[in-house]
């Protein structure tokens, strides 16, 4: 069979990234230009600045990408871009760029959901085998999903309140850690011990998650200690928070494995870059004798490689998009209960 090359484009937040992926699983070449330093000086991503920088850099990123490979645009079989969810102005730059390349080189256009990208980042490790259980953890998601085939999502459980990544960021803010909050919690946790007692979630609502109670207890603890004039050990509190949050993820995933009898587990989303979560999930996989896949660290943050990988099954199904495709700041890949 002829090899299929897909050019992927990702601009949903503060990374301008373009990648070439072969057959949905081989990263041929990737360029990621991050704007993180620019946004860090404002304490978070400024959407208008992000959009402006995407337009400034996008053709340069394309040039850099093709300097890494002998392939040319003519060798591509399709052009794929993230259309949702994300910062609307940023998504639009990548999408219009993709449409233009599609028009110039007469290649089909494929719109890709950002979250599908995080899931298919696992295809870059080893081709996904169905059925599989997916734990999706990011700033906007905390879900356990049973996938019976490509793009077939059966949601077993989701968060009843905040997403786990969101709570990481909020706790970082309460502790006064700089942007980006989540990764800094992890850094602090590494140097601390889980000496603070935080409540485990008592949601017995089957496979659903809850993180708002944990968040509130951290906030209350910080306020109470500050009022008493006693000092918070940020390292220990970060560690206590992380241990409790990950415990819930592991416990619910274990229940889902038991319930579905699934033999494969994948972790997807930005929080899958968290080393403690990776370690705990690896332990769980050993204990339950399940095959675990977690994307390499570089594919956990936003990148176009995962977008090109996620476009591959859509290419095979000929699910192409027209030039009037619009970007969306929110759009669901699947419906939660």
């Amino acid at each position: 069979m002829k090899d299929i090359y897909i050019l992927g484009i990702e601009t949903s937040c503060d990374e301008t990234s373009i990648s070439i992926v072969k057959n949905g699983c081989v990263d041929v070449a990737t360029t990621v230009l991050t704007q993180m330093d620019t946004h860090a000086s404002y304490g978070g991503v400024v959407p208008e600045i992000a959009s402006r920088m995407h337009t400034e850099n996008i053709t340069l990123v394309l040039e850099d990408l093709f300097s890494k490979t002998d392939l040319t645009m003519n060798d591509m079989d399709a052009v794929a871009a993230t259309y949702a969810p994300g910062l609307l102005g940023s998504l639009l730059v990548g999408l219009e760029f993709a449409k233009t390349l599609s028009l110039v080189y007469q290649k089909p256009l494929i719109k890709v959901h950002h979250l599908a990208g995080h899931i298919y980042a696992n295809n870059l490790e080893e081709r996904l085998e169905f059925p599989l259980l997916a734990l999706i953890v990011s700033g906007g998601h905390t879900e356990l999903v049973l996938m019976e085939d490509d793009y077939r999502f059966n949601v077993l459980g989701s968060t009843l309140d905040d997403a786990v990544g969101e709570v990481y960021d909020k706790v970082a803010k309460v502790l006064g850690l700089p942007y980006p909050g989540g990764p800094n919690i992890e850094k602090y946790a590494l140097q601390g011990k889980p000496n603070y007692t935080l409540p485990k979630s008592v949601v017995n609502d089957e496979l659903n998650f809850s993180f708002s109670g944990l968040k509130s207890s951290v906030i209350n603890l910080v306020h109470n200690e500050t009022q008493k004039g006693s000092e918070i050990n940020k390292y220990d509190l970060a560690s206590s928070f992380q241990t409790t949050a990950v415990e819930q993820l592991v416990r619910k995933t274990k229940e889902a494995i038991k319930k579905t009898g699934s033999k494969r587990l994948i972790i997807a989303g930005g929080v899958s870059a968290n080393k403690y979560l990776r370690e705990e999930m690896t332990k769980l996989a050993k204990e339950t004798n399940i095959k675990l896949s977690i994307p390499k660290m570089k594919y956990c943050t936003d990148n176009a490689t995962m977008i090109a990988a996620a476009a591959y099954p859509l290419y095979l199904k000929k699910e192409f998009s027209t030039y009037d495709t619009n970007a969306k700041s929110t759009d669901k890949l699947f419906t939660t209960k």
Binding site: S51, R52, T55, I58, T59, L62, E63, M73, G89, L92, V93, E96, F97, K99, T100, L101, V104, Y105
Partner: peptide
């Protein structure tokens, strides 16, 4: 403006 410029510069660069 951003969309027009993005499409225009991409056309000029690729063509």
């Amino acid at each position: 403006v951003r969309l027009g410029v993005t499409v225009a510069k991409t056309l000029a660069y690729t063509l």
